[in-house]
Amino acid sequence: MLLEVRNLTIRFGSTTVVDDVSFDVDAGERLGIIGESGSGKTLTSLAVIGLLPDVANISGSIKFNGQELTDLKDRELSSIRGKHIGMVFQEPLTALNPLMRVGKQIAQPLRNHQGMSLKEGMKRAIALCERVGLPDPDRIVRSFPHQLSGGQRQRIGLAIALACSPALLIADEPTTALDVTVQKEVLKLMNDLVSQEGSALIFVSHDLPVVSSMTERVAVMQHGNIVELASVDALFANATNDYSKMLIRTAQLSDDSFARFTTGSAQ
């Protein structure tokens, strides 16, 4: 098993924000985490990559490739982060360093983890830009984040996350800040790259149609608990939890009204 999360509980002071959460992700497998804001889905994914703030109190176990992550010191975690586990964040404008040209930011994990020189790193950065479908990569690597569009920035985020071919990619609401047309392109790109790399994927979102198009299994979170964990098909066929049912009903309502228009049965 690539990732084993057991009885993960996260507390801030006396408030429990993630309560006794367990799940597995096998190599190459894709898991979706869905839930409303405040349900603990982001904190769960941040815990896996060890990015929770110091005030957070974590108990339980997170094993990656058999190695316990919760015991590791920051320095030891750094050798896993970016190398074996990559992460794409929601808002690429805040996730990228505004003062550093994006080429250098893409080269950074390669220099840290694979001992590349700046020159080699920049060469790889250009190749990676091309791979994530950015036009004119020679120019892009010399740009600052604010000079790029939202979709371009998120492609850079993907390039950084995938630079070292991680075994696990965590994407936290990667397309929520994007337009629908750009969202579609970025999702397709992520889908293709993850398949090519054979990486496992944890995809966090509040949008059921998006999650179901990207993953095979879905964990539904509410108030810090996983209330349902099932394959996408099984979830749609027979969800047992009330909250999951409501999510599905809402998604279907919106999907149906759209389908009625596009197929013309509204007339």
């Binding site: 629908v180 047309t181 579609k184 149609p209 998006v210 179901s212 999907d255 228009f261 013309g264």
Partner: peptide
């Protein structure tokens, strides 16, 4: 939505995330 004339409209319609069942 049913008979989009413009290429851009078609692209927008294709971009809406759909449920697997539909």
């Amino acid at each position: 939505f049913q008979f989009p004339q413009h290429e851009f409209t078609k692209k927008l319609i294709a971009a809406v995330p759909r449920l697997p069942s539909n």
